[in-house]
Amino acid sequence: MSANREIEALIDMMARLPGLGPRSARRAVLHLIRKRSLLMTPLAELMRQVAASARECLNCGNIGTGDICEICASDKRANGMICVVEDVADLWAMERSGVFKGRYHVLGGTLSALDQVGPEQLRIPRLVDRVDSEGVTEVILALNATVDGQTTAHYIADQLEGRVTLTSLAQGVPIGGELDYLDDGTITAALNARRKV
């Protein structure tokens, strides 16, 4: 079980990553060492590059390697729609679907009395500026279906009321979901949002 100090330090660092504990970090490091030229060296080089270049987009809060991210820089994405998400992981999830062709705005959190996060800690003033300056016609509030998420959505709606069309994501039965396994809240939301077939 003993390894030299640098390797132990690497294992300790890896164990701090989400989803990894001390044992899985040890396995990952062992794997990297065994695949040194195929994995470890290129990974180290990429990590060095990303550590030097990764930054938040000054416009939307997405993470990229320049001051303005690729989505904000692309004219094709300027279709008058902005999708507001809580954090970058949500933006990446939306991009995975490939359905949304507009731009994003990353708030960097939600309003939370408990964590003392107020509107000024989020990028809400910047969103209001963008609505005015980018010719936005619709803002999609893609925030989590939680109390904090929807409180934030209502707050943003109040700030933008009358300036732009405001929409939010639907709530209901997920694809592949079985009613028997859904919680009461989801069934209530789905029933309230029923539609003609």
Partner: peptide, 12 residues
């Protein structure tokens, strides 16, 4: 929460 999420006043 489910009943309140879509109702601004109730959520507040």
């Amino acid at each position: 929460a489910a009943a309140a999420l879509s109702d601004r006043q109730a959520l507040a």
